[in-house]
C-alpha cells in the first residue's frame, strides 16, 4: 500500500539527511520509525506527507505519488498549545477541510463525521471543551480524531506517546493499533521507545546518518543493530508473565569501543 523507493533528502545540497530509504508497508500494518535525535525521523514523515519533496526516489500510496495522494494522508502532530483555544469539536471538524471548497463552511455531514471520529477514540464527551484546557493525553486523542475525520488511508504520527504518563501511553498505542486494524489503514509513527515498537509495530525502520534497516521489530532491534545505531548495549528478554509470552527490550549500558577506554561518550557517531 505504501511504497518508498530510494528516497533521499537533505536540507543543504552537500549533505543528505535521508539516504536511499526503501520500504513497503501493507494495509493494517504499523511502521515504527526509530533512531537517535536529529537523524531525520520527522524529516522522513514530512517527505511522506509531501511537505518536503524527495530529492531522489519517490513514495507511493496505493500506486499514486504521495504528493498527489495527499488527501489520503492523515497527520497527527505532537500535542501542542494552540494560539486560539478552539473547542474540541471545531478542531476535529478542521480535519474535513480538504474535502471542502475554499469558501465553504462545514455542514451537517462534516459534523457527523467529526463526532464519529471523536466517538472512535472515546472522547465524544469532551466535544465542547476548549483544546487548551485538555490534558496531554486528551489533546493527543483530539489530534488523532482530527486526522480520522479526514478519512485517511495512511496515518502519520509524530511521537504520539511523548510527554504522556504510562497509562496514557498505553491507551494511545492501543487506539492506534485498533484503528489500523479496524479501518484497514496503514500507519507510520516515530517513537523513542523500543518496547512500544515491539508491542504495536509490525515493521521497524531504524535510521542513522547514512544507513537504515527495515524489518520486523524483533529482527531489527538486535544487540548489534542497537549498538551500531544508538551506541547502547541492549538485549531482548523473553519472559512468561501470568502465562503470557512477553518480549521486553532492556537497555544495559552505553557501549564503549576499544579506542576510547573508560570514557563514556555523550554523542554516538557512526562511521559512514
Amino acid at each position: 500500500m505504501l511504497q518508498v523507493k530510494g528516497g533521499s533528502f537533505g536540507y543543504t545540497p552537500e549533505k543528505a539527511i535521508l539516504n536511499n530509504i526503501t520500504f513497503t508497508l501493507k494495509e493494517r500494518e504499523i511502521l515504527a520509525v526509530m533512531g537517535p535525535n536529529g537523524v531525520g525521523k520527522t524529516t522522513l514523515l514530512k517527505c511522506l506527507m509531501g511537505i518536503l519533496k524527495w530529492q531522489s526516489g519517490h513514495s507511493k500510496l496505493d500506486g499514486k505519488d504521495s504528493s498527489e495522494a495527499r488527501i489520503k494522508i492523515g497527520y497527527v502532530p505532537q500535542a501542542h498549545q494552540f494560539s486560539f483555544p478552539y473547542s474540541v469539536l471545531d478542531m476535529v471538524v478542521f480535519g474535513r477541510a480538504k474535502y471542502m471548497s475554499v469558501f465553504a463552511t462545514p455542514g451537517k455531514e462534516d459534523y457527523r463525521i467529526a463526532k464519529e471520529a471523536l466517538e472512535e477514540v472515546g472522547i465524544l464527551h469532551l466535544s465542547d471543551k476548549s483544546c487548551n484546557r485538555l490534558s496531554g493525553g486528551q489533546l493527543q486523542m483530539v489530534l488523532i480524531a482530527r486526522a480520522l475525520a479526514g478519512e485517511p488511508r495512511l496515518l502519520i504520527l509524530d511521537e504520539p506517546e511523548s510527554h504522556l504518563d504510562f497509562y496514557n501511553q498505553l491507551t494511545i498505542l492501543e487506539i492506534i493499533k485498533r484503528l489500523t486494524k479496524e479501518k484497514k489503514i496503514a500507519c507510520v509513527m516515530n517513537t523513542h521507545y523500543p518496547n512500544h515498537a515491539i508491542k504495536v509495530a509490525d515493521q521497524v525502520l531504524l535510521l542513522n546518518d547514512c544507513k537504515s534497516v527495515f524489518g520486523k521489530p524483533i529482527e531489527v532491534l538486535t544487540q548489534e543493530n542497537v549498538r551500531a545505531y544508538f551506541g547502547v548495549d541492549s538485549a531482548i528478554v523473553r519472559t512468561r508473565i501470568l502465562g503470557k509470552e512477553i518480549s521486553t527490550f532492556v537497555i544495559l549500558n552505553q557501549s564503549l569501543s576499544e579506542n576510547e577506554p573508560g570514557g563514556a561518550r555523550i554523542e554516538h557517531k557512526i562511521v559512514c
Partner: peptide, 27 residues
Amino acid sequence: TALRWRLNILSLGDEEAFSLGINPKRI
C-alpha cells in the same frame, strides 16, 4: 467573510494547515 472558516486552519500554522490538505500560502 467568504474565507472565514479557512482562517481557522491558517491559524494552526503552515505545516499543520498543509497536512490538513489546504494551501496555506494562497489563502
